[in-house]
């Protein structure tokens, strides 16, 4: 049973460099159980999804991306992808609600579209999150659109996330009446409901953990639902606590290691043993820091999930592996 089975909109955020796009992609694969349709969206204009899944750059339109991670019985769902840009979202919005006629062309001619999407404060964010909203709660005006069981948003980084989805605050404050106001209120209702979860990706390092703490506080302040914390790039943990302590203190038994390495059929040189001891020491130091930060993350009182560091980089196979790990840990 998934921890988030009631959630329809999974927002994945995190500090830059923590791998939030990787986690969002893996989560989409994990959520795509048999018979389910999952949409993976990106809004930052970086075409990260296309790169990660090795497909052509995504257009503004839902594309079948791949199939999900197989269930135990081999059944799998489908993952779709959508690249949202503000300008297309605005034009789609105008045609959906206002029929782009003379007024629409005039808006374009007078630079309003450009103004609204690049400059007007907050409007960009509303257009982007508005499209995400539309994908979650399909509009009757959008005929023939796919109904998704879950939508995963590869969202802006932690520092901007509350502002990004708190459209009520941004535009609500500027447009006090009128349809935009009503619509942003409806959007907020979804974003603040238990159907939404904002997951935060972090590393077990001081800065990203601090940013996660700050991010959670900010989400809570705006009454946005905090999801889980995904701890990414966790180091391997096959040394015992005793061995780690010895490695840190520099008291690992050099003779014993030499003998074992020799027994392993490897030519023992002093340089090699030095390397192994040094690597063990640095590893142990980092592990100690990780453990400290892990305690901090546990103290946050939200479900946490861990993904290992991939020394060879993250390829498509690794995404499925991560998806499997997220499922095992109950995230999907």
């Amino acid at each position: 049973m998934s921890d988030w089975s009631k959630v329809q909109l999974h927002v994945v955020t995190g500090k830059g460099g923590t791998g939030k796009s990787t986690v969002a992609s893996a989560l989409a694969l994990a959520l795509a159980h048999k018979g389910k349709n999952v949409l993976l969206c990106e809004v930052e204009g970086r075409q990260g999804i296309a790169r990660m899944f090795d497909v052509d750059p995504l257009p503004y339109g839902e594309r079948r991306l791949t199939t999900g991670l197989p269930d135990a019985d081999g059944g799998r769902g489908v993952v779709y992808a959508l690249h949202i840009d503000a300008e297309s979202a605005l034009l789609e919005y105008l045609s959906m609600y206002y029929r782009l006629g003379r007024a629409g062309r005039a808006l374009d001619r007078f630079g309003v579209i450009e103004f609204a999407t690049t400059i007007a404060p907050g409007v960009r964010d509303v257009l982007l999150s508005g499209k995400v909203y539309e994908a979650v709660q399909r509009n009757s005006r959008n005929k023939g659109a796919i109904d998704y069981d879950a939508v995963v948003l590869d969202a802006p980084p932690t520092g901007r996330i509350a502002q990004f989805i708190n459209v009520g605050g941004e535009v609500g404050g500027l447009a006090k009446v009128g349809p935009i106001k009503t619509q942003s209120d409806t959007m907020m209702k979804l974003f603040q409901s238990p159907q939404t979860a904002v997951h935060l990706v972090t590393l077990l390092e001081e800065m990203p953990v601090q940013e996660t703490i700050d991010g959670i506080a900010e989400l809570k302040k705006d009454r946005l639902p905090v999801g889980g914390v995904v701890v990414n790039m966790v180091r391997p943990r096959d040394l015992t606590a005793d061995a780690l302590a010895a490695a840190r203190a520099g008291t690992l038994d050099r003779g014993a290691i030499e003998a074992e390495v020799k027994a392993a059929g490897i030519e023992v040189t002093p340089t090699l043993v030095d390397d192994l001891l040094l690597e063990a020491r640095e590893h142990a130091e980092r592990r100690a820091l990780e453990d400290e930060q892990r305690e901090v993350v546990r103290g946050l009182g939200v479900p946490t999930y861990e993904l290992p560091r991939m020394t060879g980089g993250v390829d498509l196979g690794a995404l499925y592996e991560f998806a499997g790990l997220l499922r095992e840990q109950g995230m999907a």
């Binding site: 391997p236 096959d238 040394l239 015992t240 061995a243 690992l252 014993a256 290691i257 074992e260 390495v261 027994a263 392993a264 059929g265 490897i266 390397d275 192994l276 001891l277 690597e279 063990a280 590893h283 020394t311």
Partner: peptide, 23 residues
């Protein structure tokens, strides 16, 4: 090497160090 060490059930520390080294 790490696999060989684990095969005979001994030497977990050296095996772990060799894996760390490979990483």
């Amino acid at each position: 090497g790490a696999r060989r060490l684990q095969g005979d059930g001994s030497g977990s520390v050296a095996a772990a160090l060799l894996r760390l080294h490979a990483d």
